[in-house]
């Protein structure tokens, strides 16, 4: 397992290098001249030339790519045009809020997705199955933003139970204080995170539950399940230990790919609920054509996606010994 982990992590290096290059290339292909953007419509030709020189835009692309790598290694992603701060700092401030929502949403979607999927598979063909799959169908076909607004209308406007926008106290410190016996902040944090996390979590739970159901149905028909039944094991043990663990192989591998959709959903969710995360930052950067910032955010998303898929591979190996021992 150690060797496998090391190998996966080393393999991540060339992937990361490639991602940086692709991000760089995409930025070069964007229409519009950054210098012109900076200076506005009525810039003089000289002004544009000076800026281009100052930004190094007059250099050939391979020098600029090299500089980009070099700067990245030193933790430098350039300076945002409009935020008056280094891109790294802007992203750093927004990363934690996004991770908060993403992780809470992931927990919601995994728990609900697995419970609904397993129950539906075990009770296949019954009204319970039908109900679970109706839920899944709704979740899959409902647009994220529409669902988010629906939640907001219900809980913030009609019931006035939850704040409609913004983030509460940071979740992790609040959790720490709650453990020390001071739960006030945690309550506040959870009230703020509830709707964005539910929006993102429930739509993903729907996808996961369908996936879990179908792979559970497949494993439940396997010979080793018949063996488990012939051993006289209790049905719960057969389902949870013998079937679910094998079913999770498919689920985990698909979930890595689904993480991209989760990121896309995060951008929308953050915009709806005014959540000060990367998604919002990305929207702002794009609308202002803040090129260094766009580049930084895109790179962060891409690296996160690649990293999650490395984690998925590791998780896969934890579940499946055949991978580990290869």
């Amino acid at each position: 397992m150690l060797i496998y982990t090391a190998r996966r992590l080393i393999l991540f290096l060339p992937i990361a290098i490639g991602i940086v290059a692709v991000t760089f290339a995409i930025m070069q292909l964007l229409p519009g001249d950054p210098a012109a953007v900076l200076l506005g419509e009525d810039a003089s030709e000289e002004g544009v030339r000076d800026i281009r020189q100052a930004l190094g835009l007059d250099q050939p692309w391979w020098i600029r790519l090299g500089t980009y790598y070099f700067d990245l290694l030193h933790g430098d992603m350039g300076v945002s045009y409009f935020q008056n701060q280094p891109v790294v700092d802007a992203i750093g401030q927004r990363l934690v809020p996004t991770l908060e929502v993403a992780i809470v949403a992931l927990l919601i979607s995994i728990v609900i997705g697995i419970v609904f999927g397993v129950v539906a598979a075990v009770r296949r063909g019954t009204p319970i199955d039908a109900f679970c799959m109706l839920f899944a169908q709704l979740g899959v076909s409902m647009p994220v933003f529409w669902f988010g607004i629906l939640l907001m209308y219900l809980f913030a406007i009609q019931l006035d139970m939850l704040p409609s926008i913004g983030r509460g106290p940071p979740l992790v410190p609040a959790l720490g204080r709650a453990l020390m016996g001071n739960p006030g902040d945690l309550g506040l944090a959870l009230m703020h995170i509830a709707m964005p996390a539910l929006t993102l979590g429930l739509t993903n739970a729907a996808v996961i539950s369908r996936l879990v159901r179908s792979s559970m149905l497949e494993t439940l028909g396997q010979d080793y399940i018949r063996t488990a039944r012939a051993k006289g094991l209790a049905p719960t043990r057969i389902v949870l230990v013998h079937s679910l663990r094998n079913a999770m192989l498919t689920v985990v591998s698909v979930m890595g790919l689904r993480f991209g959709a989760l990121l896309g959903g995060a951008v929308l969710t953050e915009s709806i609920f005014g959540w000060p995360g990367l998604g919002q930052l990305a929207v702002a950067a794009i609308s202002q054509r803040d090129i260094p910032l766009i580049q930084g955010v895109v790179l962060t998303f891409a690296l996160a996606f690649a990293l999650v898929n490395v984690l998925v591979d590791l998780l896969y190996a934890v579940i499946d010994p055949r991978i580990r021992y290869e």
Binding site: Q222, D223, Y224, R226, T227, A228, V241, H242, R245, N246, L249, I319, D320, P321, R322
Partner: peptide, 8 residues
Amino acid sequence: MAALNPVM
């Protein structure tokens, strides 16, 4: 080949 649980 198929009668034993592959991940146990």
